[in-house]
Design a protein around this nucleic acid. Structure first.
Lengths: 166, 166
DNA sequence: GAAATATGAATGAACG
DNA sequence: CGTTCATTCATATTTC
C-alpha cells in the first residue's frame, strides 16, 4: 500500500518542512495573507520542495476556514482564536457571520441541485434537470443573446448585492 | 447552541447546460451584463434548471475576476531549480473539471472548456514516510517572514492580489 | 484493499 | 470590481 505514488500527482502535497513553516507563519497571526507575503513565503518554501503561490494561498484559506469548523474532535491544539466563536460541535453551530439571503432571493430548496456526487455510500440524487441534455448546439438556445453585444453599465448605481430592481 | 438547520442547498450549482451557456456568453466578450441582459440570460437558463438573476450576475463577476487572476504573471514565478522536475507534458491525462454524476455521460464529449487543474504540473514532491519531523531549524529559513506581520492589523499595503489557478 | 479521515482545490456568495 | 469567506468536491493519506 506504500507504493501508491503512481499516475503522478494532481494535488500539491506540502513537504514536512513546508508544512511546519506554514504553520509557524499562521501561528504568528497572519489571518489574511497578502499577495506580497504569499510571494515571499512561496519563494522561501520553494527551497523545501515544489510549491506555487496559489498553494500557499489555498493553504492559508483552508487553515483559517478549518479553525472555525472542525469536522470532528481531535484538534485540541492551542490556537490564536480571533474571538470568533469556536465551535466544538460538528453538527451545526452556524454563526451568522455570513448572511444567507434566503429571503433576498428565495432560492427554493425544493429543487435540489446536484452536489453530493456520492463519494461514499450515499449515492447521488438524480435530477431531471441534469438529465435533460440536448444537442451540443447549446448556442442555439442563447444565440439571441449573442446579438446583444457588449452591454454598457447603464445606470451606475451602487449595487452591493446586485440590486435586481427593474 | 444554535439549532439552525437549513435543509436543502442554499448554494446554486449550475447545471452542465447552464454552465456551457454561460461560458459561451462569456466568451463572446462581455464584461458585466446589464440588468436587462441578466434577465434574458436567466430566463433562458431557467430551462435547464433552477437559476436566479443574482446567480447569473455572480457567475459573471466571478468569471471575470478569475479570468484576470490567471493573466497576471504566472503563479510559478518562483522558478526554482529542481532537477527531478518532471512535467506531465500535456494536460490530457487527468484533465477533468468537475466530476458530474455518471448520469450526465450523455453529454457531448467535446468539453472544450477545460481550465486545466493548474498546480503548475511538475508535482514531483516525494513523500518520504520516514521524514516526518525534523529539527526545528526550519525557523531559520522563514524567520524573516515573521517581521512581515499581518497587513490587516498593520494597515500597510493593500495589494491583495495573487494568482489562483482556478 | 476498502473505509475513514485529512486536506488541497474549485466555486458560489458576500463584503468593502 | 477586487478580494475574501464558506461550502463542497476530489484525492492523498491513514487506519482497519
Amino acid at each position: 500500500t506504500i507504493a501508491h505514488k503512481m499516475t503522478g500527482r494532481q494535488r500539491w502535497t506540502p513537504t514536512p518542512l513546508q508544512l511546519q513553516n506554514l504553520e509557524r507563519l499562521f501561528d504568528q497571526g497572519i489571518g489574511t495573507p497578502s499577495k506580497q507575503k504569499i510571494k515571499d513565503i512561496t519563494d522561501e518554501l520553494s527551497q523545501h520542495g515544489q510549491i506555487a503561490e496559489h498553494n500557499v494561498y489555498n493553504w492559508f484559506q483552508n487553515r483559517r476556514a478549518r479553525s472555525k469548523r472542525k469536522q470532528h474532535g481531535g484538534v485540541g491544539s492551542s490556537s490564536h482564536k480571533n474571538g470568533e466563536g469556536e465551535v466544538e460541535t460538528e453538527t451545526e453551530t452556524l454563526n451568522e457571520k455570513r448572511k444567507r439571503p434566503e429571503s433576498l432571493v428565495g432560492l427554493p430548496d425544493g429543487n435540489d441541485n446536484n452536489n453530493g456526487i456520492g463519494t461514499t455510500a450515499t449515492t447521488t440524487s438524480p435530477r431531471p434537470e441534469d438529465l435533460c441534455f440536448q444537442s451540443p448546439e447549446m448556442s442555439s438556445d442563447l444565440h439571441f443573446l449573442g446579438v446583444l453585444s457588449n452591454p454598457s453599465i447603464s445606470g451606475c448605481d451602487h449595487v452591493e448585492d446586485y440590486d435586481i430592481s427593474g
